[in-house]
Design a protein around this nucleic acid. Structure first.
Lengths: 351, 351
DNA sequence: GCGCGTTCAGAAAGCGCTTTCTGAGGTACC
DNA sequence: GGTACCTCAGAAAGCGCTTTCTGAACGCGC
């Protein structure tokens, strides 16, 4: 490296491709071609460029690359709350898949605020994220759907990939779909088999597709067996541990008590379990309890929770995989993921 | 908007600042100034620019902004594993603080691979992240420390901010430090007060500063009371639920059994609790068990876990806050976070 | 031996912004 | 009324890359 070059480098702080090219005695174009393997370059020149890049420990400026080549090496992921074990599990899968593709993950938590979700999509668009992954169910709300589509359509038209986990009613994008209806139905049948006829449900906000699918699948399967859940045994609450606690507490206040309670997520079931304990209601002796998702911790509860197991990590990997795969020319791809009923000690035949 | 402009827009796909300027009939510079509030612009021009930007739903290209102004609106966060409740809790705090600053978070999981950690720092440098946050303890390893410093030093010299959570021996950066030693010592004293004299410890890899601090604090406090932990009652295992399970199982195989076991993290304690249950060892009747961190779930275990509570969310917010605050001219800032001993039903006086 | 087609390095034109520099127009003061 | 000064809009120069275009050098066939 010449002294002048050294000096420039010092006060410019970053090593640029220009520096590498100068050091190797080639043009900018050649240096770029070597480092990207874009096209054939004479062996000796290639060697020199590689050597210089190594010696100067050159790191390309991702922004410049993105701007010039419209490439970008980051994907955006939008979820409701990373600290919810469900999303944490999925995020883990997404990140390990991203690592394999050499991608960086920009993760945003909406804290369940639909407006913020749309805001984040805009930010990710501004960042020219290679793909945007929507983790967590959509809202069944016309206005929201329209705004979301308004952000997503132009994004996709300009080459952005979009993939979602969970059903989004009106978004025509690649999707990984946990079989919420079927899983909940299978769970219902398993609980019927245990002898229960008297059910309660702790549910989250019905505007979430995940909630309505699980609730629908559960009640439909019961209906097929001629069993109906009285409206006063369905309690809606926040989609959290504390929501589950509140809902279960509320359920206990109702005049009659079911023999078996289904919480639409494990997280809510955890809260419900605590509420039952605090109220001296034994699980499963006084009431059976089942959840959905099979987040890791529920094995370790007392009693371990009956639930519908979803392969969270794998789901994350698959959404990421969908987004990285060459987009299908016309129609969106759907990958269904089955849930498996896992009977544990929190459910037992009714007394 | 003129027809020609409309046409350009259509095939360029993105609305650029140029489009906005043309639409508003002002220069590029003026449009930029209005949108950034950089300097005074005559009211009527400002109005026009704002109107055009709104009408065209202009979104600035973050890459172009970063390249031109060396700004960047993203921060990088490196943790070991998002699906670990400890990191998930911290990440949640980081993200809510980031949202307040209008920042996007790029989250990377190293899966505890030191090499990958350094690789991610390089990627985040390439992305010109405004700041890099290292969540999770450093490795006490000369080579690793050197490589990390080699990445971090030039990054900081060029204006990058770095902040860490947990102790990193030789990194001179802003830090949020959970008081691991003090917390573990306080826990030890609380357990001594319960009457225990016979302790066991389930520990993670000793090369992690967090582990050695907690272990050190615990044993030192015991030593002050004249109590010593026999080496065969200290079992090392992976820093996970299953590691805790394995370590507890191993501990039960040793010839003698302590009356009280300290797992250096709640996650390991959860595994230990399961192992004890599976081996017919009652907690706290046969053995008391304590953890560290107070991740949300431990309240809901049976029995609820005694632990040292750390404000995970707040820690995340503070680390982000440090990174956003104007860097201190010379020395690095340290914010200490105290842990609070929370006695729950998993500990009781020895029989 | 000359024209033609290849191959591959270099020059240069952007990508979409920010910011400095330039200069026009207005105000204040002598 | 003219000079000096200030304010603020526009022109233009990058930021660090990728990629097209240009052209030199070479090999081939007739």
């Amino acid at each position: 490296m010449t002294e002048a070059a050294e000096e420039r480098r010092a006060d410019r702080a970053y090593v640029t491709l220009q520096d590498v090219a100068r050091d190797a005695g080639v043009s900018l174009a050649t240096a770029s071609r070597v480092l990207n393997g874009t096209s054939q370059v004479r062996a000796d020149l290639r060697e020199r460029v590689l050597a210089s890049a190594g010696r100067l420990s050159y790191t390309p400026n991702a922004h410049a690359q993105a701007l010039a080549g419209s490439s970008s090496t980051s994907v955006g992921v939008i979820c409701h709350d990373v600290s919810d074990p469900y999303f944490a599990g999925v995020a883990r899968g997404v990140m390990s898949a991203a690592a394999e593709h050499g991608m960086l993950v920009m993760l945003a938590s909406t804290f369940r605020d639909p407006a913020r979700e749309i805001e984040y999509v805009a930010m990710l668009r501004a960042q020219r994220a290679r793909a945007i992954l929507l983790i967590g169910s959509g809202f069944e709300d016309r206005g929201w759907e329209r705004s979301m589509a308004a952000e997503l359509d132009p994004y996709q038209r300009t080459g952005g990939r979009v993939a979602v986990l969970s059903r989004h009613r009106s978004l025509k994008v690649d999707a990984v779909l946990p079989q919420n209806r079927e899983g909940a139905a299978a769970l219902a049948r398993a609980l019927l088999d245990l002898g229960h006829r008297d059910f309660g449900v702790l549910t989250g906000p019905l505007a979430l597709t995940t909630v309505s699918d699980r609730l629908g699948g559960f009640t439909d399967a019961l209906a097929d067996a001629g069993v109906r859940i009285p409206p006063e045994h369905v309690v809606e609450a926040a989609f959290t541990r504390d929501g589950g606690y509140a809902a279960a507490t509320e359920l206990l206040r109702r005049p009659t008590r079911p023999t078996c309670v289904f919480a639409v997520t494990d997280v809510m079931a955890i809260g419900a379990l605590a509420a039952f304990r605090d109220n001296g209601v034994a699980v499963p002796d006084d009431v059976s309890l089942a959840g959905f998702d099979d987040i890791p911790i529920v094995r370790d509860l007392t009693p371990p929770l009956t639930t519908v197991a979803l392969p969270l990590n794998e789901m994350g990997e698959r959404v990421m995989g969908l987004a990285m795969r060459e987009p299908s020319p016309r129609r969106s791809r759907i990958e269904r993921v089955a849930g498996e009923v896992v009977l544990r000690a929190s459910t037992a035949p009714p007394r």
